[in-house]
Design a protein around this nucleic acid. Structure first.
Lengths: 242, 242
DNA sequence: CGTCTGCTTGAGCAAGATCAACTAGCGTGG
DNA sequence: CCACGCTAGTTGATCTTGCTCAAGCAGACG
């Protein structure tokens, strides 16, 4: 029993959960998974539905949103290729996962996944590692939300996006695209929801970074980083020292 | 093989990890655990030391701090009785866990704990459930940090503290203490670090809630909730509607 | 009883929100 | 292929919330 052929060539595999489990578990997982395309805007899990699907992204970006009845909302996580989206054993809560761009992904039902978790201990272990990692990421993001200035927030965001997109391209093609133009997966107002700023403020900080020659934009959604070192230093500048 | 006698009477047990695993795992865990007192200010895990202890709190409060070289810091989590403190398999990062008050706790070394995790699958499963729960809590806190006003932040904080302290008292004595005075586990400036406000702002919001008759304070550290419903409504008020 | 530290209160300030035009991509249909 | 129009994004002016700086107060402890 071996993994299907598309797994052999899947660039996400090495970084994803599939790459961290035994060949047997991998094959069993692959047997239940369905490769699929998901359009932008599709909800992968939400408050209302009890559907509990489980998905590994191979291309595209998913946003996880915490939204309240009064309409305020906060994007609490972005998931990139090789990340997984799903809430095994989760109690219902106010989180929604939604495709921020068109996706390619491997998906299976929550029921099937929970059975697999029981059958393959190494899968459950891999999931624990991922949950602990997500917790660390969330706690770093809490620092950003609570303590960083608008300028630092936008710089941190662009540095993060650039790194994740570059890592994905590296896994796919083996080339370093960090200096090339890349497409932003989020609109200005979605970026604002991530950073808890207003879209006007995001726009002004973009203008700022452009004026300093650190980034360049093309059209509405493309950007490139000219000076990653400077971008990173703006990501964590002491308030009055830059 | 049975759990030691102090476990039989431990009020934290039902809610803690120990209450969610088999009797055998429980006994094995208890055999390695040491009941201890930990003074306020003691660091339970941090960036520098590789000590990786593992602790279940039975009394007191632990704060988890994300701090940066420039001195800014953000409290990213509070741990109460029955919560566990430790980072199994964790990569080094910028988090520190520190006793916010004097503690009573059950503790064992990280090495012993990781061995136990391998030996008892149900323990690993319980840990996964807890990590997923902590992730939900973190994401709710992100909403607070990013979207709530100062007034809502302080009201949310007091409601949360009151609920956790009341739940603890309920487990210990079986009585509802929600209307009684309770001791705040954190100073004004620590509360400010939690909510990403300045201590002056926290102080003003306390004054606010007192003036409205929703809470009452006594001394520096004691408070009681007079009107929990009102407190909760302030926790999530739409910006201009209260 | 005094001092020390943590808390409260006040006055002015600044970062970012809000409100309001205005502009530029991008898709559509002539 | 270009004019049109829609939406996303930009830019400017003003306002608000919470920060900063500064002074005064009170509980805890020797």
């Amino acid at each position: 029993m071996t993994a299907p052929s598309h797994c052999q060539t899947c660039p996400a595999r090495a970084l994803a959960i599939c790459g961290q489990i035994s060949a047997g578990s991998q094959a069993d997982l692959a047997r239940h998974m369905l490769r699929m395309r998901i359009p932008e805007g599709r909800v992968l899990y939400g408050t209302a539905d009890r559907s509990k699907s489980f998905t590994i992204i191979t291309s595209g970006v998913v946003k996880v949103i915490n939204s309240r009845p009064d309409g305020r909302q906060q994007i609490v996580s972005l998931q990139f290729p090789s990340d997984f989206v799903g809430r095994p054993h989760a109690e219902p809560c106010s989180l929604i996962a939604e495709a921020a761009t068109d996706l390619e992904a491997c998906s299976l039902s929550g029921r099937a996944f929970e059975d697999l978790l029981v059958a393959h201990r190494d899968l459950e272990h891999a999931l624990l590692m991922r949950a602990l990692h997500d917790l660390d990421v969330a706690r770093d993001w809490m620092f950003l939300l609570g303590r960083k200035s608008a300028e630092e927030k936008v710089a941190s965001f662009l540095a993060m996006i650039s790194e994740r997109m570059t890592a994905t391209a590296m896994a796919e093609t083996g080339t370093d695209t960090s200096a090339a133009f890349m497409r932003l997966p989020l609109s200005r107002s979605e970026i604002a929801e991530c950073l808890s700023l207003r879209l006007e403020t995001v726009s002004r900080q973009f203008a700022n970074l452009k004026a300093r020659g650190i980034i360049e934009t093309a059209g509405r959604r493309s950007f490139r980083v000219h000076d990653m070192a400077a971008l990173k230093s703006f990501s964590d500048a002491t308030p009055r020292a830059a």
